[in-house]
Computed example of a mutant assay.
Amino acid sequence: MGTNEDLYAVPDDTAVVLVRDAMDRTTADLPPLPDLVGAARAQGRRRKARVRFAIGGGALAVAALGVAGAVALPVDNDKQKSSGVINVAAPPSSPSTTPQPPVHITPSPGETSMAHLPPAERAKQEDFQNRAVPVLQSLLPPTVGTVQRTDLNVRMYHGTKDGKTFTIMFSVRPSGPGTNPKPCLEVKGQVCKKTVLPGGIQAHAGTAPINNGNVTETRLSFHYGRSDVSLSISPHDESNTSAPVTNDQILELAKAPAFLDLVKAADADPVEKEQKTAPAS
């Protein structure tokens, strides 16, 4: 008679089949398992998208800070060269437009200065001078130097270059009988040139020898509206230096809109008295 082990012994292949059948019967009534792989893949994609979004947002924030820092921080050329980063400096502030004080000129005996004018009239003339200075400075050639107004009269300005002072006379004066500017004549060494300004106005320029004849003065004249307009640049007598402005240069100045705007303003609201002429005897 065999042992208990012999009773329960089953061939290997048969045991495998029995176990598999039992598992199939046990799980037959259970619902199918969800697609874990698909869900995991979808979750992974969402997580990856969130990471990319976070990285992109951080990059934008860093870029914004970089731009702000480039504008706010001063430029260091040495650091730029070593790092390869170029900062954009903030634009410089505009230069001060505060009018400069005038050049003081002591009046000659019997002459009066702007200091003797009524306060309102003096303020009006000084305002015109302060508007004229930057226009003359920008339109006259650099050889004239730094342009400044004077406190002697509204017509007088100075140009200073290399220690030499050139007197500039700029006048917009109401016309009086017989005071219209005369055409330039090439007499006594004077060299003339003319041009036509906007509105058909004819302007004359002349370079003429003065004093001992070794130096020249440059002059401009024309009639505008109800006024006679003149501009002259005198030589520097002490050094025998002629006025550093040519006829062509002064005629180009006369065509400039900024200069004509000054003329127009003074013609509409004069800063000088009407010129009087003495009757012929």
Rank of each mutant, 00 (worst) to 15 (best):
S281R: 01
L136S: 09
P102L: 04
V88L: 14
I105F: 03
D24E: 05
Y157S: 01
V88F: 11
T277R: 13
A265N: 10
G56D: 04
I250R: 02
R47E: 14
T143H: 08
L139S: 07
G225Q: 06
S83P: 00
L73G: 12
R50K: 15
V75F: 10
G2P: 15
V51M: 12
A61Q: 02
Q202G: 00
P101C: 03
M169P: 00
D269I: 03
R25Q: 07
Q125T: 02
S239A: 15
V187H: 08
A59C: 13
P209G: 09
D6H: 11
V271F: 06
A268L: 11
G38H: 04
R25A: 10
N211I: 11
P91W: 09
V154G: 05
H236W: 02
H116D: 12
N87T: 08
V75N: 11
G145R: 06
P279I: 00
V215F: 02
R20T: 08
E272P: 02
D21G: 02
P109T: 09
V263K: 03
A39Y: 03
E121K: 10
L251T: 07
T27F: 11
A208Y: 01
T97F: 00
L73V: 14
R173M: 15
P102Y: 03
Y8A: 07
P91T: 07
P34I: 14
R155Y: 01
K276N: 01
V172A: 10
G225K: 10
P31H: 10
T112K: 06
A265T: 14
L65A: 15
K124D: 12
P107C: 02
F259Y: 15
Q275I: 06
L231D: 04
D261M: 04
T165K: 07
M23L: 11
T207G: 03
E111I: 02
V67C: 10
P134L: 13
N240W: 04
A49Q: 15
A280P: 02
T106W: 01
T150F: 00
C184G: 09
V271I: 15
L36F: 14
A89Q: 13
F166S: 03
L140W: 10
R173G: 01
V103L: 08
E121T: 06
P244K: 08
V271M: 09
V271D: 09
H158D: 05
L73N: 13
Q190T: 15
R52P: 01
V19Y: 01
Y224W: 12
R155V: 09
P270C: 06
L197H: 07
R131L: 03
T179V: 05
S93R: 14
Q275T: 08
V19P: 00
D29S: 10
V62H: 07
S175F: 00
G206E: 10
P95T: 07
S281N: 05
L140S: 08
Q125N: 01
T241D: 06
A280E: 06
